Computed example of a mutant assay.
Amino acid sequence: MSLNTGLRLARVQPTLLSHGFTTAPAAILPLLFLGASSQYTPGLRMRRSSRFASSSTGKGLPRTTSRAASTSTVTQTKPEEPPQPHTASGSTTTTRADLNTLGQPAPSHEPSSPIPAATLLNPPASTRPPPLDLPTRDPSASLFRHLFSLGKAYTNFYKTGLKAVFTNRTLLRTTPSAATPPHLGNSADTYPSRAAILLRARVRHDLARLPVFGVVVLVCGEFTPLIVLLFPKLTPYTCRIPKQLDVIRKGAEDRRGASYRALAHVSREDGLHRTADGHICRVLGLTSRWWDRAGLDGPMSSVKAAKAVEWIVNDDRMIREGGGVEIVENGEVVLACEDRGIDVRGKEIGELRRKLESWISKTAPTSAQGDQADAEGTRHEAEDKVRRVLLRLEGDV
């Protein structure tokens, strides 16, 4: 290093002389080296000098030593960044973005938002059949190609439906237990939500039909859509094609209409109550239609009708207290009307929604809910109203 360079360095940084070379010889040597060299670019000089500044912090040297590289070249330094928070060990605190980058769950200190009412009323969409998009035949295409595309669409539909059965089973394990159905008048935190109850019921329904349906798919293969039309209730609900659902609904509505026509000949209300259980089972499809052809009520009609009425009362209450029919999804509105013996074939969703609202209004109990005795009376009143609506003593919904 020449003498002139050293003198220039002393003029630019006079504060170094006040500290003395003997106080920090290891910190002065890089400065001298940078001042003697002219082969570094400004960017490199900035990095070198900033490294020196960080290493000299705490030894009494100022942080302005980054200008000591040269007096002939003006180097602009970056603005000083604010100090980063440190943990007890001295390392920089990891931010939320860093945790996400590393694939680690970021800790959340924000208050959890309330669960939407629609989530508590509506079960997952996977409990309903997926959409079935059937290809339209191109006149220029061959029949074999059209049939192949048709079989592929049905295969994808059944594959999605079967996968949904196991998905719903997994979801059921993470929901509150719905083994004990709620009763009218219970506190809101003593029973599971409507979505959890419907999820459990549909999972049980689908799992019970899964073994037989699996055998049908393995044996019949591409002819499965024809077989399920002959036995429409054989498949899980998530695997029912639209035409299959239409066959089920048409049979239920024909049976329901015949029961109401037979009920019209019973003029006295006492006679209606004597035939109420059998009629309710026929309207809701709780017994086999073979008993109708024999002119008899199905076995255990009174027990089945009582359980169905109790379930409808609880479902009405959950819809009423959960925000009303306007929060229920369109697909669930159709299923709720079916559960209450309301015809849905050929009806618009707006009309079905109005019918369900009329049902909820007619079955609402008028007595206030108070202690256990009042709750029991409220439940009996609601059950009586549901029976009267099913018997059409309150008019059609």
Rank of each mutant, 00 (worst) to 15 (best):
N4C: 03
T5A: 07
T5W: 08
L7R: 10
L7E: 08
P14D: 15
H19L: 13
P25Q: 04
P25Y: 09
A27S: 13
I28C: 11
I28G: 02
L32C: 07
G35E: 02
A36Y: 10
S37F: 03
S37R: 12
T41H: 09
L44D: 14
L44V: 11
M46S: 09
S50Q: 12
F52V: 11
A53I: 14
S55H: 15
S55I: 13
S56P: 07
T57G: 07
T57C: 07
G58E: 15
K59L: 14
G60I: 12
L61W: 15
A68Q: 05
S70I: 05
S70N: 14
V74T: 12
K78W: 01
P82G: 02
P83A: 12
Q84E: 09
T92S: 08
T94Q: 13
R96H: 03
D98T: 11
L99W: 15
G103P: 07
P105Y: 11
A106C: 10
H109G: 03
P111A: 01
P111V: 01
P116E: 02
A117T: 09
N122M: 11
P123E: 05
P123C: 08
P124H: 05
A125F: 05
T127A: 08
P129V: 11
P130I: 13
P131W: 04
L132C: 08
T136M: 03
L147I: 06
S149T: 14
L150W: 12
K152P: 06
K152L: 13
A153G: 10
Y154R: 15
N156E: 15
Y158H: 13
Y158V: 08
Y158C: 04
K159P: 00
T174G: 03
P181T: 14
N186S: 05
Y191G: 07
A195W: 05
L199E: 09
L210V: 00
V212Y: 11
V217T: 10
C220F: 13
E222R: 11
F223S: 07
T224H: 06
L230K: 06
T235F: 09
C239V: 10
R240P: 10
Q244K: 02
I248T: 06
I248E: 13
R249L: 03
K250S: 10
Y260M: 01
A262N: 12
L263V: 02
H265R: 07
V266F: 13
V266G: 03
S267L: 06
S267P: 04
R268M: 02
D270I: 12
R274K: 09
T275P: 01
D277L: 03
I280C: 00
R282E: 09
G285A: 03
R289Q: 09
D292P: 07
R293Y: 11
L296Y: 10
L296R: 15
G298W: 13
A305L: 14
V313C: 15
D315E: 07
R317E: 09
I319L: 00
R320E: 00
R320V: 01
G324M: 00
V328A: 03
E329M: 06
A336N: 05
C337I: 00
I342V: 00
I342N: 00
R345L: 06
R353P: 06
R354K: 05
K355N: 04
W359K: 00
Q369S: 12
G370R: 13
D374G: 05
G377Y: 06
G377L: 08
H380N: 08
H380Q: 14
A382G: 10
L390Y: 02
R392W: 03
L393P: 07
E394S: 05
E394P: 00
G395Q: 05
D396C: 01
V397S: 00
V397C: 02
V397Q: 00
